[in-house]
Design a protein around this nucleic acid. Structure first.
Lengths: 190, 190
DNA sequence: GGGAGCATGTAACGGGTTACATGATTGG
DNA sequence: CCAATCATGTAACCCGTTACATGCTCCC
């Protein structure tokens, strides 16, 4: 059973499932400003590769759209078979969530460094987070106003915003914890 | 400059940096009940491969410890060069955090399904989260009581617990949001 | 003139996974 | 006796990345 196709193929097919005709270039752009906030954005070359694969198995079809005179691009749309396959995939149990947090790994190795260096690491991370939060807020506002992608993507981008906000809060908690770690005794009882 | 070694090598070396002599088997176990809560746990075969690599570049050294008569295992320890290299690595800017959330991907594709199927997906995810939370709490309690790994790993496991708790809260928020999405109008102004 | 955006790819590489093999010991 | 745990690896595979190539058009 397994999965029939790699994760990237499903996400690309997912992008197509909103009913638009999109080129590889478009797909990469949409991935960059929606998918990346809760999943990830494949390399451009990978997008093209998956599109060719999807077409080969009949889940997508393409036509060449000439726009001006010599400007050509190949646009893809999802097929009925593709939509069905995607639905089947949705019903399978979700793969485990992946969280790979290099900053926490560095904190975890704090004994090599001491508190001073850690503060620097944490500050850097906080800066990254606020930057991401900003981008996510823009995406969420846009998705909330522009109804054309539907309610679900909008809700998910708002989720992404709240997630980043709570990551920031978690960072503060961590710093407090490092300054004043709980012990067996003073641990609030669960 | 880049990174000299793959991420797994640094995490394995990190495990070794706590000063114990550990076998590949041990390493895999420690990864499973600490690292995996905020980073990830490499396959056993990968652990052995990285250990051989670390030894080749002089960041770890190994000796064969025979325990009974014929039970042998190869135990590794970090070298001075290894500790220095690890410290250098800590100082480089952290790689971006990776979050790959298959459940949110499914919600994002909610238009293929409708609310009923989504509830099932979300319930499944909630079950996963509570299970993980349970495991994380055990790890955190253990790390808080057993001082032998030091304060930093303990603080990070507690961070992991809080993170999972807030993920659960975020799930509730998402469900409320899906039931009653904000619009341009009623959006709290920011 | 040149950089940015549009548009699509190829080639090489490697990190990490799964599946499998082996064999010993311990405990129900 | 069999399953689980200890303990270590090999082989095949492939997903996905980086680096690179190409060429057009628009705009400063």
């Amino acid at each position: 059973m397994a999965s029939e196709l790699p994760a990237t193929a499903w996400t690309v097919l997912g992008l197509l499932s909103f009913g638009r005709e999109l080129s590889g270039y478009d797909l990469k752009k949409w991935a960059d400003n929606s998918l990346r906030f809760f999943y990830w954005s494949p390399a451009a070359s990978q997008v093209y590769a998956e599109l060719r694969r999807l077409e080969k198995v009949g889940y997508a079809s393409s036509t060449v759209a000439r726009q001006d005179d010599l400007r050509n691009k190949r646009v893809y749309s999802i097929t009925d078979a593709g939509r069905e396959a995607l639905q089947r995939w949705l019903h399978e149990p979700a793969e485990p969530t992946v969280l790979k947090h290099p900053t926490m790994l560095r904190v975890w190795l704090g004994h090599l460094e001491g508190p001073a260096a850690l503060t620097k690491v944490l500050d850097g991370h906080r800066a990254d987070l606020t930057e991401q939060l900003d981008a996510a807020r823009h995406a969420a506002d846009h998705a909330t106003d522009d109804a054309s992608w539907g309610a679900y993507p909008a809700a998910v981008t708002r989720w992404a915003v709240r997630r980043l906000e709570s990551e920031l809060a978690l960072l503060d908690d961590l710093e407090r914890d490092l300054a004043q770690p709980p012990t067996r005794r003073n641990r609030r009882n669960k």
